[in-house]
Write a protein that binds this DNA or RNA. Structure first.
Length: 292
DNA sequence: GTCCAGGTCTTCC
DNA sequence: GGAAGACATGGA
């Protein structure tokens, strides 16, 4: 009989619901008992509790560092926020509205595969596709007694073997080809995702963009959410909208000028700023227009 | 029925 | 180098 494990992490300024639901990861579910997901192959339930987070696992855990790393609990949010431009009312409003939003440090393969599936899809659809993928191809993980079965994110080798047609069965459409090819490259070791940790940002981006279906946006998502490159700045439809409305209301900047603006304006933690703008624009646009 | 979604690739000028 | 269209699917 395995004994479940419980742990309390002290941390301040950590908005757990926002962090787990803001579109950087896709497998967390809000249940009456807390937020449930799979990290490092383990089923986890998380709850905000006092000045910290309470974690619950179905198996014994001797060392919780893997979860602290995933949640980036050592990061002092105030240190990051103070690097943001002081005179930027748009970003300041976004920070106020989304205070406590954090960036996670995800497993590279799951992050890469998830964002390959994200192109021109709404977040709920991405979640549906990934759930289907885990159900069909993922290994079962240990859950509490009586809990519905939960599956890990599938290994690259499993998806490589499954083939494109089987992947299409998860309703991912044309993205199946890119996912299957990426799975093959990773499974064969042609692309070594672990080795990217030792490269600089530009070199790691080039490696990721060598994959079909991975352009600058998806590469930047992986650089930011899985490898923690703090300046990586994914520009999707919402962030492009935010940048145009807030900083370029009159004329559209060239891609080169936009890139220069991003890196000079948002500073060393541009990626964090991006996530605040993304979530603020995506969720609060209608309400914000009423105020203006 | 039409539009749009955490894009990318190809073609064409 | 940049604009336009194709690519699948589902929800609003």
């Amino acid at each position: 009989m395995r004994t479940p494990a419980e742990h309390w992490f002290p941390v301040r300024h950590y908005n757990l619901p926002l962090t787990l639901s803001c579109g950087q990861s896709f497998r967390w579910r809000n249940t009456p008992d807390g937020w449930e997901g799979v990290v490092a192959g383990k089923w986890v339930r998380l709850r905000p509790l006092r000045d910290g987070l309470q974690a619950f696992c179905a198996e014994p855990v001797s060392d919780w560092q893997w979860l602290a790393d995933y949640l980036q609990l050592h990061v002092r949010l105030e240190d990051i926020l103070q690097t943001f431009p002081a005179h930027d009312p748009h970003l300041q409003k976004a920070v106020q509205a989304c205070f406590g939003l954090r960036l996670l440090r995800q497993e590279p393969w799951e992050c890469l595969a998830s964002f390959i599936l994200s192109s021109t899809k709404q977040i709920p659809h991405i979640q549906q596709i990934i759930e289907c993928l885990c159900l069909r191809f993922g290994a079962p993980v240990c859950v509490p007694p009586g809990h519905a079965p939960v599956y890990a994110f599938p290994e690259a080798a499993t998806l490589a073997r499954a083939g494109e047609e089987a992947l299409r069965g998860c309703r991912m459409g044309f993205r199946a080809r890119a996912l299957q090819e990426a799975a093959c490259r990773v499974a064969e070791g042609v692309l070594n995702l672990e080795s990217l940790r030792h490269l600089d940002e530009a070199a790691a981006r080039r490696q990721l963009m060598s994959l079909r279906g991975v352009g600058p946006k998806i590469a930047n998502c992986v650089l930011l959410f899985a490898y923690g490159f703090p300046r990586a700045f994914p520009v999707d439809v919402w962030v492009r909208r935010a940048l145009r409305e807030a900083y370029f209301p009159r004329r559209r900047p060239t891609p080169r000028r936009l890139e220069a603006f991003i890196q000079s304006h948002f500073g060393p933690h541009a990626g964090y700023a991006q996530q605040y703008l993304f979530h603020y624009w995506r969720t609060g646009r209608a309400a914000r227009r009423k105020i203006q």
